[in-house]
């Protein structure tokens, strides 16, 4: 399999990201895949494990314009979308765009906002445009939301409803760093301050071609057979309340393509599907017991489906 020239920018991005976020190469790669597949990313974990750093780093490395909203419970939709103010000099209203008008939007602790505010953001994610005061304004291209969320059993949160979770292509959790990574972190004293100085790996307009190449990775009939078997197995499995939706199937394919692309391949393999399946499926599958599927459930699902 000849390595493509496009593999190198991807590898550069990953190498740079891994030098900032220590010991999380799999999560970093999944996050990059999510952006390559034009999806939005949800990172869910405890405070202080590096959610914000990951989002910020990716935005910097991809050379994209970055904005950040810290969600609180008293935040209103206008705080995100922007407001019109009266310009005395011109005697007319002038629209002041909110933080949503950026290429990478880091929505920190999205589950602290009220459902009304959440849905304003989610609508923008879905439509790629914002409608306020009867006027529709397009969002910049590309537009990503990287939302972070504390586990919803913490006090004072509004958990995202199922239908809105589905808008996120992937969901990650970071987990504690391993011993060595934590030691390195302690020795370097944290890298948050160096972030603004991080050099971008891609120039302006270089990311869109990468996205197009990722979407063009070949998925053979045999691979689609396998993917369908997995989806069907999720619908038949009695532990889950319901199976994966067709939209989830599309997301799975897109994410698997991006994963294959980051591996420098021009075809999707079952391994790619298996690698992204936990991130695609865990927030979409709910167990009979009420909680979301955990990694072991997804592994069992994978093990129950032989390759065709």
């Amino acid at each position: 399999m000849p390595a493509t020239n496009n593999a190198s920018p991807v590898n550069r991005i990953l190498a740079a990201a891994n030098s900032v976020i220590l010991g999380k190469s799999n999560q970093t790669r999944l996050a990059l895949c999510c952006l390559l597949a034009r999806g939005h990313l949800l990172i869910e974990d405890l405070p202080g494990v590096g959610k914000t750093t990951l989002a910020h780093t990716l935005a910097r490395l991809l050379g994209l314009q970055f904005a950040r909203i810290q969600f609180t419970s008293d935040m209103l939709p206008a705080d995100i979308l922007g407001v019109s103010i009266f310009d005395r000099e011109r005697s007319s209203f002038r629209f002041l765009p909110g933080p949503v008008f950026s290429q990478v939007l880091l929505a920190d602790e999205i589950n602290r906002a009220t459902p009304k505010t959440q849905s304003a953001l989610l609508e923008a994610m879905e439509e790629g445009q914002v409608t306020t005061e009867g006027e529709t304004r397009p969002l910049p291209e590309p537009f990503f939301v990287i939302a972070t969320q504390n586990p919803s059993n913490q006090i004072g949160t509004f958990p995202l409803p199922e239908s809105q979770l589905d808008r996120f292509l992937l969901r990650l959790d970071l987990g504690y760093p391993d011993r060595d990574a934590e030691r390195a972190l302690l020795e370097s004293g944290g890298s948050r301050e160096q972030l603004p100085a991080l050099p971008a790996c891609l120039g302006d307009g270089e990311f869109a071609p990468l996205q197009r190449q990722a979407a063009a990775v070949y998925a053979s009939p045999a691979l689609l057979d396998y993917l369908q078997l997995l989806i069907e197995a999720s619908r038949r499995e009695q532990r889950f309340v319901h199976g994966l939706s067709p939209r989830a199937a599309l997301s799975l394919l897109a994410a698997a393509r991006a994963w294959a692309f980051t591996d420098g391949r021009q075809m999707v393999l079952p391994e790619d599907v298996q690698a992204v399946l936990p991130a695609v499926a865990r927030h979409r599958l709910r167990l009979i017991s009420g909680s979301h599927a955990d990694a072991e459930d997804i592994a069992a699902l994978i093990r129950s489906v032989p390759l065709p």
């Binding site: 393999l269 391994e271 298996q274 994978i302 093990r303 129950s304 489906v305 390759l307």
Partner: peptide, 9 residues
Amino acid sequence: RAAWEGPLD
């Protein structure tokens, strides 16, 4: 090889 295991894995 497990039945679900892909070739590269």
